[in-house]
Structure formats: structure tokens, C-alpha cells
């Protein structure tokens, strides 16, 4: 299975620490600094449990997303990636975390936004290549484990499907034991794979 359209979400520690409008302001500042990379901002804070505030670009959208009533940073890779699935997952995880770090460090947010780094949601935005089924899970489990391992080093982690509803997109939650922060995960990814203990997915 050639994984594309990989999405990754990291959840905020404290929802409501800042208002959604703060992200409109922040993303606007990112646009001003980016010289044409980002196309626009879409603000859907008025719908419940929705896509929140999106920063639209060609390669990937970045959003402060509230799907499932859980605010978090969603990195939505749209353009195809080269490499094997493990490499692609790592690239997307890294890009998502870099955006998380940028948010955590944004002076306009005064350090109020922190991400829970012990949990990551990996979602494949393509029902054709990755239907939400146990078969897809089996086919991707090794790649996901490798990615989780790269992310959490030697820590224990579990992989679980977010939902078994076949209408939904295939998504897997990676939950690690212990406390992590964004910087640590980025450092892990930069280090490459370690030899951590791995627990079978439940």
C-alpha cells in the first residue's frame, strides 16, 4: 500500500486556553512571513466540532482543528510524497510537530498553547487506498509501529483504530506511556529509529 494524503493531529493540553480568533491572527502573521506559501485562512470556528481555523496551502494545510470536539493541530499533507511508507509517515509527523513547536513558541499566544505529545492521531485522507477496515490496519501496522517507534523511542506505546465505522477515514491513535513534549519528539525523529519496547496494538 502506497500511503499518501497522510494527516497527523496532535492535541492541545488545555482546550480554550486561547480563543480561535488568536489563531486567525497567528496564521495571518505566518502568511506575512511566508512569501506566497500559504494561500488563505478559512475560519470555521462557528461550527461545532469542526475543522476550526485552517491555513490553506498547496502542499499541506495546517489547521487548529476541533474535529471530534478535541482541539489540536492537524497537518494535512495533500501532495504526494516519495519514499517508503515509514519515511512518509516520519516526514508528516515531523512537519506536524514543527508546526506545533511554532505555535508553542508564538509570542502572540504567550506560551498558553501546549500540545500533548503522548498522543498522535494518524489519518489517511483517502478512502480508496485506505478504507477504514481491519485489513488496512493489518497492512499498515508495521509501518505505523515503525513511525511510533521513531516518535517515542524506547517508550511503550499502543496503536488503536479511532473508529470502526467503515464510512469514516482510516485513522489510528498512537498513545505512548510517559510524558513527552514536542521538542523531545522532534529530537527523536531527528535521531532516527531506536530500539524501544513495543507493545502490540490493542
Amino acid at each position: 500500500m502506497d500511503l499518501q494524503k497522510i494527516n497527523v493531529k496532535f492535541f492541545v493540553e488545555e482546550p480554550g486556553a486561547v480563543s480561535p480568533e488568536a489563531f486567525v491572527l497567528l496564521f495571518n502573521a505566518w502568511i506575512q512571513a511566508a512569501d506566497g506559501e500559504y494561500y488563505d485562512i478559512a475560519d470555521y470556528a462557528h461550527v461545532e466540532a469542526g475543522p476550526g481555523i485552517l491555513l490553506i496551502a498547496h502542499e499541506a494545510n495546517v489547521a487548529m482543528d476541533n474535529t471530534g470536539n478535541r482541539w489540536g493541530l492537524l497537518y494535512n499533507r495533500k501532495q504526494p510524497l516519495q519514499g517508503n511508507n515509514g519515511e512518509k509517515l516520519r516526514r508528516v509527523l515531523k512537519a506536524a510537530l514543527e508546526n506545533c513547536r511554532r505555535i508553542e513558541e508564538a509570542s502572540s499566544l504567550e506560551g498558553k498553547v501546549r500540545f500533548r505529545a503522548d498522543e498522535a492521531l494518524v489519518l489517511i485522507n483517502d478512502r480508496l487506498s485506505a478504507p477504514n477496515s481491519e485489513a488496512t490496519f493489518k497492512a499498515l501496522k508495521a509501518d505505523l509501529e515503525t513511525a511510533a517507534h521513531a516518535l517515542y523511542g524506547n517508550a511503550d506505546f499502543v496503536l488503536e483504530r479511532e473508529s470502526e465505522d467503515p464510512r469514516k477515514r482510516f485513522s489510528v491513535r498512537i498513545k505512548a506511556a510517559g510524558r513527552f513534549n514536542v521538542a523531545a519528539l522532534l529530537a527523536n525523529l531527528d535521531k532516527g529509529t531506536g530500539n524501544g519496547n513495543r507493545r502490540a496494538a490493542s
Binding site: 494524503k5 478559512a42 470555521y44 469542526g50 475543522p51 485552517l54 494545510n61 485522507n125 478512502r127
Partner: peptide, 24 residues
């Protein structure tokens, strides 16, 4: 719903002429 997620911004917008629109 599926298509709005995969090709748009996860929003279906109902217009003033009973259409649905996707953006982006």
C-alpha cells in the same frame, strides 16, 4: 461528507439557491 473531507475543507456549504458548495 466524504468528499468534503477528502477534497475540500471538511465543510459542505448550503447556498441561497439550495446548492452545496465546496471550497479550496
Amino acid at each position: 461528507a466524504d468528499l468534503s473531507e477528502e477534497y475540500s475543507d471538511a465543510i459542505s456549504h448550503v447556498t441561497t439557491r439550495q446548492d452545496i458548495q465546496y471550497h479550496f
